[in-house]
Design a protein around this nucleic acid. Structure first.
Length: 198
DNA sequence: GTCGAGATTGACT
DNA sequence: GTCAATCTCGACT
């Protein structure tokens, strides 16, 4: 645990940029979760954009509004969290209110509270701690209870991180049954970073 | 009320 | 490579 670690959340205005640009801009910033057990965080190194209305792979395709997708219709900067099989996934809501877009955080590089994260999710190698969307939520202690929070107020935060110089872009993962949308290059990651999911 | 599917992961053949 | 875990919620009877 680093004791000089300051929580400097990115302002709500940061989220008011086009979803694909925001997905790229998030790389290098920090995903932070504050709990009773302590604070843990990591640098965002992999994201995927879901463009809602026009994106067959998105839960909000054709503005499909359900109990689960409801938060995507809110203003940007909210947390869209849902359970996938035995795991939770965390998304950053994007697009202005009424335009249901979101960005899935697929991987982070452990930064602070690493012992706490290992406690929640024991692993031998650090590179296996948060290199997947279900893995990072368990390591950070993010659950469905965090659904609907914002990323600019504690306990769940995205704070200013580092500048990323080399960004790679490619197809999204795990959406093979989504027609043409499965080939859209909406996945962004930090090139050569060992904590990316694959 | 019942059924099925899913933006994943880990264990196993 | 295959497969099951475990839970939310929409679609349907």
């Amino acid at each position: 645990m680093r004791h000089d670690f300051k929580l400097e959340p990115l302002p709500s205005s940061f989220y008011s940029q086009p979803t694909l640009e925001l997905a790229e801009a998030l790389l290098g910033h920090m995903l932070v979760n504050v709990t009773e057990a302590g604070t843990s965080s990591g640098i965002i190194v992999e994201t995927e954009a879901y463009l809602g209305e026009s994106d067959q792979a998105a839960h909000s395709y054709q503005k499909r509004r359900t109990k689960r997708t409801e938060i995507m219709f809110a203003s940007p900067g909210h947390a869209y969290i849902y359970q996938m099989h035995t795991h939770h996934l965390v998304n950053v809501v994007s697009g202005e209110a009424g335009n249901p877009q979101a960005i899935l955080i697929r991987a982070i590089e452990p930064y602070s509270g690493i012992d706490l994260m290992k406690q929640r999710r024991p692993v031998e190698k650090l590179t296996n701690l948060t290199n997947g969307p279900g893995k990072l939520t368990k390591a950070l202690g993010i659950t469905r209870a965090d659904y609907g929070r914002t990323f600019f107020e504690p306990p769940l935060l995205i704070t200013k991180g580092i500048e990323i110089k080399t960004i790679a872009r490619g197809k999204r993962i795990g959406i093979d049954n989504s027609g043409e949308a499965k080939d859209y290059p909406y996945r962004f990651w930090v090139k050569n970073n060992p904590y990316v999911s694959r």
